[in-house]
Nucleic acid binder design. Sequence first.
DNA 1: CGAAGCTTTGACGGCAGTCAAACCCTGTGG
DNA 2: CCACAGGGTTTGACTGCCGTCAAAGCTTCG
Lengths: 229, 229
Amino acid sequence: MLNQAVRTSVTPVKPGNSASSASDQFSMVMVHAGLVASEFCYKKEEEIYGEDEPAEYVYQVVTGAVRNYKLLSDGRRQIGAFYLPGDVFGLESGPVHRLTAEAIVDTTVRLLKRRSVEQAAATDVNVARSLWAMTAGELRHAEDHMLLLGRKNAMERVANFLLEMDRRLAVAGLLALPMCRRDIGDYLGLTLETVSRALSQLHSQGVLGFSGARQISLRNRQHLHNMDA
Amino acid sequence: MLNQAVRTSVTPVKPGNSASSASDQFSMVMVHAGLVASEFCYKKEEEIYGEDEPAEYVYQVVTGAVRNYKLLSDGRRQIGAFYLPGDVFGLESGPVHRLTAEAIVDTTVRLLKRRSVEQAAATDVNVARSLWAMTAGELRHAEDHMLLLGRKNAMERVANFLLEMDRRLAVAGLLALPMCRRDIGDYLGLTLETVSRALSQLHSQGVLGFSGARQISLRNRQHLHNMDA
DNA sequence: CGAAGCTTTGACGGCAGTCAAACCCTGTGG
DNA sequence: CCACAGGGTTTGACTGCCGTCAAAGCTTCG
């Protein structure tokens, strides 16, 4: 499961545009608690942890991308979140992971032993507050996503997705999507064909440009905002 | 907004079948912190707090029922959760409420000042742990609900809803639903007509019985479990 | 250069949404 | 006590958005 221990680190990951406070808080937890994070690498498509497995570690993406999902018995899949560089994932209040996490592409993570984090939280109230805030941040995302899944049409979902990815991983105005159309569909509650058709329509309207299917440049963010309802 | 101060209390609410640990934790927070909760009543359809309003209180349902929802600008609504006797709601890690809460029927709540809760968490690590656990419980529900909204068909959603309500509010094998068909639809990402058709089909199959549209008895829970995918 | 996987596009179908009308229940006032 | 009004629920007819199935095109990498 853990491929390759590369090195240890307490330095912050990529201050970049993924300016969620979660990554800062992750660093803070480590600093306050005197913890040291190890780095590991997962290959493309490799499982990081499975649904209902004991939660032994907390992770932070350094490079790459992760999908977090649930499966129905017949194979239908709902991706709850994508984790990108700087994002913390796998943090549980209870004993087990409630979704499966997989590397979408080759991915490097920093990780902390969950038990160490718990101990830090038991002695430092600021650490405890940070853990709560991280879970609350995931809840906020889930609440927004329920609105999308329950009430938005296909074009609104895709527009919302593009704006979210633009905010979280665009560099130099260019979106380099790590995930395939099926992953996007399983995140948005659509089929891969519907995602493709929506993107094609936006392309033909000049709202976005392609440099290969996964390199996208947004040419009219306002139009996307208007479509997002 | 706060109609009527009835009395104060530190005793647990209704140990009943809503055996979520959240209500116990609410009591624990109060006991550990020496806090006293006030009781208030909201009338049917009355707003308890609005989206983006400052989060000043934490609430626990004593009697009645609450819907927690987000709206799109054109009126489409997604209900994220129903809160029933014993449930805690309105707890935020950040400064504001992210959904609107309304009483579905006449509802009594106990409430704590958020500032008091924060202070208790700052000095008692067990309180801090409880707050995190409550938010984590809401996140778990949201993750399950994303799977329902993104990937289940109408019958699977309704079957899931009936089993959830059966677990949370059935007394003597009878479900007394406080919410109308539109609320159920807005919770399940369906229209009220689709909810009604699914319930009618289950009735005609003998899976459930009606005593009025909102009094339901489940006659074949196994069948519902099988339908829930 | 070739194979495999990913993406796009097209044709068609079906599930759930929309619109509409009838039915039912509850509460209220005569 | 009954009539009525209003809202909630059920049912029907039809529509349409998105899913399904299929095939062709495009990348990428060995």
